[in-house]
C-alpha cells in the first residue's frame, strides 16, 4: 500500500518535472520560461520529496521519523525559497531590459 503511494507521488513529480523541462526548452522567451521553471519546479520537487517521506513510514523508528521530518523541512524550504529565487532572477532580467516576447513583434520581424 505504502509502496503504491510512493510510486504514484514519485510518478507525478517526474511527469511534472518532464513538462517543466519541455517548457524550459520550448517557450519562446525568458519570461515565459520562468513561468515553467518557477511553477513546475516547486510542485515536482515537493511531490517527489513527499513520496520519499511516505516511504519512511515502512519501519517507524526514531531515526526514520527524524529523517522524515528533515525531508519535510527541505520541502518546506524549497516551497519558500523557490518562488523567491524565481523572483530574484526575473527581476534581474527586467532591470537589465530584456524585452518580453509578443506575437505581434514576431510577425513584424518576419515581414
Amino acid at each position: 500500500m505504502i509502496d503504491i503511494i510512493v510510486m504514484v507521488l514519485f510518478g507525478i513529480g517526474l511527469f511534472s518535472f518532464f513538462s517543466t523541462t519541455v517548457g524550459i526548452l520550448r517557450f519562446p522567451d525568458f519570461y515565459s520560461r520562468m513561468h515553467a521553471a518557477g511553477k513546475g519546479d516547486v510542485f515536482s520537487s515537493v511531490a517527489m520529496l513527499l513520496g520519499l517521506v511516505v516511504y519512511h513510514f515502512h519501519h517507524p523508528s526514531l531515526d526514520g521519523v527524524l529523517v522524515a521530518v528533515k525531508i519535510l523541512m527541505i520541502s518546506l524550504f524549497i516551497f519558500l525559497a523557490s518562488p523567491t529565487a524565481t523572483h530574484a532572477i526575473i527581476s534581474a532580467g527586467f532591470n537589465s531590459g530584456v524585452v518580453p516576447w509578443s506575437r505581434q513583434k514576431q510577425e513584424e520581424g518576419q515581414q
Binding site: S16, S19, V22, Y31, S32, A36, G40, S102, R103
Partner: peptide, 19 residues
C-alpha cells in the same frame, strides 16, 4: 502545474499565449 504542463506539451503553444 497542470496549466504549465498543458501549455508546454501543446503542439501550437505559441498561438495560445499572449504575454
Amino acid at each position: 502545474t497542470v496549466h504549465v504542463t498543458y501549455l508546454a506539451l501543446h503542439p501550437r503553444m505559441r498561438e495560445l499565449i499572449e504575454p
